[in-house]
Design a protein around this nucleic acid. Structure first.
Lengths: 155, 155
DNA sequence: CTAAACTGGTTTCATTTGTAACCATTGAAA
DNA sequence: TTTCAATGGTTACAAATGAAACCAGTTTAG
């Protein structure tokens, strides 16, 4: 099928399709693209904006740095996402009493409403995706991802 | 630990850390970032450029469209990656005899040399990553990703 | 034939991203 | 104290990306 060069260096060929970093990325990209419709089509949010909303919805009130840590975003992404959500009046900033560098971010009613609207959609998306797998496959992906994450951590 | 709001809508909170699209993306991003050092640090390649190199190294000669399909890249990405690799004289274009819209791309000696240099590094990277997992976890991640990919396909 | 639809590939433009420099504030050190 | 390093967050600039328009060439349908 594929046109491999059958030389003595056969071993030195990398099969991209089965290369872990590639498989992982491709899949994440596909899933993420598909999922993004939920926040992009309906509300015109970017991924950083969605994550910011999700973080605040989940935790109630956070600083920008905490947001960045929780959702693995660079501080500039957070900064811009927060600015945009503030522009929409979906969140407000409240300066910290003791440390005036810090701002505490909280969703407004409108922000919370949007969050509450999206959460069921997000859950449904995940549920439907997992529904296409067998029980064994579901635990495989869950555990596999968990293990890989661990493996990356302790480098 | 986390400051959850314990309201009657508890169920309507989404735990980002365990949300599949998020876990997947975060992990892929981390792995990809780590792996990118192999082609970025050493040769200053971008990911599309690396994938182009990998595709041609693996298959010997391909058209731009085929490259895009194999490695899931938008045609503009392919176009730019090819242009850059050509500029480096890592590949050459040969117009198709029958259809003059098509170009067949092939690695030059220099391109092939770079490919041959990187393949073992890529394999080592993958091997070392997987070495941190137990045998069971390895099959879990492999099968899990495979199953998920299938699930996405038949939508 | 010839016009319209299609395909491979490039280019243009607007948006998104990352890096680094930056401002303001705080904490530690002298 | 004054000074210097660190921290929270923003901004400026360059590079990477995606969407859509585009330019050949090719095919299809009258």
């Amino acid at each position: 099928m594929t046109t491999k060069r059958e030389t003595s260096e056969e071993l030195e060929i990398l099969e991209l399709e089965s290369f872990l970093p590639y498989r992982l990325y491709r899949l994440a990209d596909a899933v993420s693209r598909e999922f993004s419709r939920i926040y992009k089509d309906r509300h015109g949010l970017t991924r950083p904006e969605w994550r910011t909303l999700a973080g605040l919805g989940q935790h109630g009130s956070m600083t920008a740095t905490a947001l960045g840590e929780q959702s693995a975003m660079h501080k500039t992404k957070v900064s811009r996402a927060v600015a945009e959500l503030e522009r929409r009046r979906w969140l407000t900033r409240k300066p910290d009493e003791n440390d005036r560098r810090i701002e505490h971010l909280t969703l407004t009613g409108a922000g919370l409403a949007a969050y509450r609207e999206m959460v069921p959609l997000a859950k449904a998306f995940e549920r439907e995706l997992l529904a296409k797998l067998s029980a064994g496959e579901r635990t495989a992906i869950t555990n596999g991802l968990g293990a890989l994450k661990e493996a990356l951590g302790k480098d």
